[in-house]
Computed example of a mutant assay.
Amino acid sequence: MKTYLTPVKDIERKWLIVDAQDKVLGRLASEIATRLRGKHKANYCTFQDVGDFVIVVNADKVRLTGKKWDDKIYRHHSGFMGGLKEKTAKVLLEQKPEELLRKAVRGMLPKNTLGRHQLKKLKVYAGTEHPHTAQQPESLEL
């Protein structure tokens, strides 16, 4: 049995808009990652990008449960000795509210070129305004 390969010109991509206000971060991120990968479609293929574009508004009003605001730590290293940088979720929300959701979704996508390509279809905004009205996004209730 052969694997069906959808021709690139036949892939239909929708633009979806999600309101993140009072949504739990992990549950929201997993649903967004599913839409970005295209796993909700019948023509889903593991090695092809068939997913939709997702616009997230109100990313600064996302929720975390328990004590994760203080206990959850985001780390990155500069590459130099002693270059480990750490930020808690609360600090990251104050400085870059879009990055909190983007990092959560990024962790749920494949760690390869395809995953990086799929992440580019995610547009995250802290407020209610976004510049993608020309694409006529459909509202997605989660």
Rank of each mutant, 00 (worst) to 15 (best):
H77S: 12
E86V: 04
E94G: 07
W15M: 05
K61W: 08
A134T: 05
K68T: 02
T133M: 07
V91M: 15
L92A: 06
L100P: 02
K72D: 04
E129I: 06
V24G: 00
L140E: 08
L119T: 07
R102W: 11
T128L: 10
R27M: 10
A59E: 03
G38E: 08
I55M: 08
V124S: 04
C45N: 14
I73H: 08
N112F: 01
C45I: 01
T3R: 14
E99T: 11
K103M: 10
G66C: 04
S30V: 04
M108P: 06
D70F: 09
L92P: 05
K121V: 00
E31S: 12
M81W: 08
K2S: 13
V105K: 11
A29M: 07
L25P: 08
E94I: 06
E12F: 08
E86C: 09
V50E: 02
P110W: 11
Q48P: 01
K41I: 01
E141K: 15
M108W: 05
S30D: 03
L140Y: 13
W69I: 01
T34Q: 06
I73V: 14
H40N: 15
A134M: 01
R27V: 03
R106A: 15
K72R: 12
K120T: 06
R116P: 00
V62Y: 06
Q135W: 03
S78M: 03
V50T: 14
A126H: 05
K120G: 09
P110Y: 11
K103D: 11
K9Q: 13
K123W: 03
Q136S: 13
T128A: 15
L84V: 12
D22V: 02
T34V: 10
I17W: 00
D52W: 09
Y74P: 03
V18C: 14
R116C: 08
P137R: 07
K14F: 03
M1Y: 09
L142D: 04
V18L: 09
V56C: 12
R13K: 13
R35W: 07
T65H: 07
R106E: 13
D71S: 13
Q48V: 02
